[in-house]
Amino acid sequence: MTDIVLFHHAQGLTPGVHAFADRLRAAGHRVTTPDLFDGRVFATVEEGVAHAEEIGFDAVVQRGVEAVAGLPERVVYAGSSLGAMPAQKLAQTRPGALAVLLYHGAVPATAFAPSWPAGVAVQAHVNDEDAWGDLDVMRELVGLVPDAELFTYRGSTHLFTDSSLDAYDAAATELVVERSLALVARLS
């Protein structure tokens, strides 16, 4: 069993984020899903991003850091779009991180530390035509990290792994879960 922390996207901790976490739990992992928005859920990405801007992106990331304070060090961090920010910060700065799973977004490798920590794997997933997906940032990050994989899926929708949203793609999500679990199994 591995501890996984899954940070939600800009629309909040939706039923689809819970369902995705349940898929990881079904494989025997302990999955924590911090609520960075204090229960608020938004109908659109734009509304959620506006809320994050109101709170401040640094404050959103700090909420993520505080949410893991009681967890063991050996953790896999995962983040969906906006949630990639706290996931990536923790993977880069909290001792003992095993990996970061980046769904639908990423930030530059030097956003939280001058270099990527040795031994921390990266796996990134994004639709190849997702305007919100930071594909170029993901490519750069994967190019810098020795243990890194980038998986692209055909499509332009954002947040395709959230079963509670219209963008949901069941077949692509199946691959994301399968590939994520394979990485976790390899590192455990």
Rank of each mutant, 00 (worst) to 15 (best):
Q88A: 00
I55M: 15
A78T: 05
H51Q: 13
A87I: 06
K89Y: 01
I55V: 15
A111H: 07
P114M: 05
L101A: 11
A50F: 02
L90F: 07
A52L: 09
G83W: 12
V100Y: 00
G119D: 10
P72T: 11
M85F: 12
E53Y: 03
A78D: 01
T110H: 13
T110L: 01
V68D: 09
A118E: 15
P108K: 10
A84H: 01
V49D: 02
S115E: 14
L90C: 03
L82D: 06
G96D: 06
P72Y: 10
A111F: 02
G119V: 10
A67Q: 06
G83N: 13
A111W: 01
W116V: 03
E66Y: 05
A106E: 05
P95C: 01
T110N: 15
P86I: 04
G105D: 09
A113G: 13
G56P: 08
S80L: 14
G70V: 12
V75Q: 12
L102I: 12
A69F: 06
A109C: 05
A78F: 06
A78E: 01
V107W: 01
A118M: 09
G64P: 08
G70K: 13
G119K: 10
V75E: 04
P86K: 01
A69V: 15
S115T: 14
E54Q: 15
P86T: 01
A111Y: 02
E53Q: 15
P72S: 13
I55S: 04
G70E: 15
G56N: 14
I55K: 05
P108H: 11
A50G: 08
V75L: 03
A91S: 11
F57Q: 04
G48E: 03
H104D: 15
F57S: 01
L98E: 07
A99M: 07
S81M: 08
S80D: 15
V60E: 11
E66F: 02
Q88R: 00
A121M: 12
A91K: 07
Y77H: 04
A118P: 12
A121P: 04
S80P: 04
V100C: 02
A118I: 06
A91I: 08
A91D: 02
G119S: 08
T93E: 03
L101C: 07
S81I: 04
V61T: 15
H51A: 13
V76C: 00
F112R: 11
E53L: 11
F57N: 05
V60C: 13
Y77T: 04
A113M: 08
A67R: 04
L101P: 00
T110G: 14
E53K: 10
V60D: 09
Q62I: 09
A109E: 05
